[in-house]
């Protein structure tokens, strides 16, 4: 098959109805194509860096603000419960563990799904309907490589970086939150946090964020690339990219929990 093949997908089903299974199959094919293309030479470094900048660096402010608020609120909200058990001293440890293990990766991924997924769906969607993707194809540039591979690789690599930074910011915010009612020095807080954190808190969470990033990229690109004609389709691509990517994140999270459990990393 030549490159034109995946374009047939949406065109063939003129009936308009594509059920969930069919879409899952298409997405799996799309993912398979990604892996085939990502390895074949002619790497679009320029565009990869540009996408990394847009999807990584440009997402940082939003992620940072969310992480800060999250860390602060989690701390303030958990305090009464821990107080009831006389365990306020466990506050830093508790917040650190929940942020690192779960909340940091998932919230960051969801923010990215909203921000990156939607813009990808819309951008590629409008490129699709205005034939820009076709134009790339006929000018001898593989649009899948140029548009999809760079985007997916960039989110796969950038979301983990965002997650690490978000974790750090959330824990720092937690330090501020702890000090609303208490005076805990930074060294003590630091000590309490690191006393509680172990490798199996950090590493599985870190690894799963690669998958979150990958899912965001793949879903965003898939939705954009498979936009049905018309501007209405662009809106639909954009919003369903967010919905599907968010769902995928939760499902991956579930799978990650099971895997870490099976591997005995909990």
């Amino acid at each position: 098959m030549n490159r034109a093949a995946p374009y047939l997908g949406p065109m063939v089903s003129t009936t308009g109805y594509r059920d969930l299974i069919e879409e899952a199959g298409d997405m799996a094919r799309f993912t398979g194509r990604f892996f085939r293309e990502v390895l074949r030479p002619r790497y679009e470094w320029e565009e990869l860096l540009r996408q990394a900048f847009i999807n990584g660096y440009r997402s940082l402010p939003l992620v940072a603000v969310t992480a800060f608020i999250m860390g602060l609120v989690l701390t303030v909200q958990s305090r009464p419960t821990l107080e009831r058990f006389g365990a306020e001293s466990m506050l830093p440890a508790m917040v650190a563990i929940s942020v690192v293990r779960e909340i940091g990766p998932v919230i960051t991924a969801l923010i990215c799904a909203g921000k990156i997924g939607s813009s990808m769906g819309a951008e590629l969607g409008s490129m699709k309907v205005t034939e820009q993707i076709d134009a790339m194809e006929v000018s001898g540039t593989n649009p899948f490589k140029y548009l999809v591979v760079t985007r997916v690789v960039s989110t796969t690599l950038m979301v983990p970086v965002l997650v690490v930074l978000a974790d750090a910011i959330a824990i720092w915010a937690s330090y501020i939150g702890v000090n609303f009612k208490d005076t805990v020095s930074w060294p003590l807080f630091h000590q309490q946090v690191f006393d509680s954190l172990i490798f199996s808190d950090l590493l599985p969470a870190f690894f799963k964020s690669f998958f979150f990033g990958f899912a965001i990229g793949i879903v965003g690109c898939y939705k954009g690339f498979h936009t049905e004609r018309g501007t209405e389709g662009v809106g639909r691509a954009s919003h369903s990219a967010v919905v599907v990517a968010s769902l995928m994140i939760f499902m991956l999270d579930l799978v990650a929990v099971q895997i870490t459990d099976i591997l005995g990393l909990n």
């Binding site: 030549n2 490159r3 490129m127 205005t130 820009q132 006929v138 000018s139 001898g140 593989n142």
Partner: peptide
């Protein structure tokens, strides 16, 4: 295919400029 396409020009109905 790409090399062949370099020898063919295509003007799109919608221009398809990269916006």
């Amino acid at each position: 295919l790409d090399r062949m396409r370099m020898r063919i020009g295509f003007l799109f109905q919608s221009n398809a400029l990269y916006d």
